[in-house]
């Protein structure tokens, strides 16, 4: 059975159509990379998955039921920024979800529970390579280390679906490669279903099992907002040639240029 189903999904804000006629199914354990020009509804789609926005028409189903319309623990998330809590050190950031679970009213664990949570958190931090930075606050960590921490924090909750919103967009290329390895490793170990949004096409071609390209296949240069974006390519990763990459890249760039021009 498909974990996530998109059934004729539309998202509109007034006259502005952001997404239209999305139809797709995603199985448990798939790693979907979503690429597209800015303004093509990638982030809106993520918000629909997260539950902070609701579809205008059509359905977004999780296990056959409409996806909950507010964020909850079934879907973990890593944002590009502000993903970790600045007032807690690395260890406390990762222990937090266990503390919230075990202590409904105080949100804090003590004694043996605390010890057990601490051990789990330390193991998690070690697996993302932060074993040496347990008592560091986020502002003392580099951008890459902060994203490692964010991954650890999201994954210790063992979410069924992990959403990544341009998680490596602000990182240097070398560090980005390390992070790719880390994400792939965690995805395999935890059997997650991953949606990753990126504007880096190459990243989409290299990571995961499936590539979605969000693009507007109908475009009115005067009023680009009157048509929404659709999934124009749905490719298995590793099964496409250079020509495809180039033609996708061409399409995305054209749309991007047109949208930018329209905004100005």
């Amino acid at each position: 059975m498909a974990t996530i189903e998109l059934k004729n999904l539309w998202k509109e804000y007034g006259d502005q159509v952001v997404l239209e006629r999305l139809n797709a199914e995603v199985e448990e354990g798939e790693f979907v990379t979503v690429v597209g020009a800015s303004g093509c509804g990638k982030t809106t789609f993520l918000k629909l998955l997260l539950g902070t926005e609701s579809p205008t028409r059509g359905q977004l189903l999780l296990d056959g039921k409409p996806i909950p319309d507010e964020p909850d623990e079934s879907r973990g998330i890593v944002f590009q920024r502000y993903s970790v809590l600045p007032h807690l050190n690395a260890l406390a950031n990762v222990m937090l979800c266990g503390e919230l679970e075990t202590s409904r009213w105080l949100g804090r664990a003590f004694g043996d529970t605390r010890k057990r949570l601490r051990e789990q958190a330390v193991a998690m931090l070690e697996s993302v390579g932060l074993g040496g930075a347990l008592d560091k606050y986020p502002h003392e960590l580099s951008g890459g280390m902060q994203q490692r921490l964010a991954l650890a924090q999201a994954l210790i909750k063992k979410p069924r679906i992990l959403l990544l919103d341009e998680p490596f967009g602000a990182l240097d290329p070398g560090i980005r490669r390390d992070m790719h390895q880390l994400v792939l490793k965690l995805w395999r170990e935890q059997a997650l279903t991953v949606f990753m949004i990126t504007h880096d096409l190459a990243e989409g071609f290299y990571l995961g099992t499936r590539l979605w390209v969000f693009d507007k296949d109908r475009l009115d240069p005067q009023t680009p907002e009157s048509y929404g974006a659709r999934i124009t390519y749905d490719l298995p990763v590793g099964d496409s040639d250079k020509g495809t990459l180039q033609s996708i890249s061409q399409n995305v760039n054209d749309t991007s240029r047109l949208l930018q021009g329209a905004i100005r």
Partner: peptide, 21 residues
């Protein structure tokens, strides 16, 4: 940041816990 409020919810926090932690 809204990101942090969403993050807390994905970690399973209820309203009271979000305020407290």
């Amino acid at each position: 940041p809204a990101e942090q409020l969403i993050k807390m919810q994905t970690l399973g926090a209820n309203t009271w816990q979000i305020i407290l932690r």
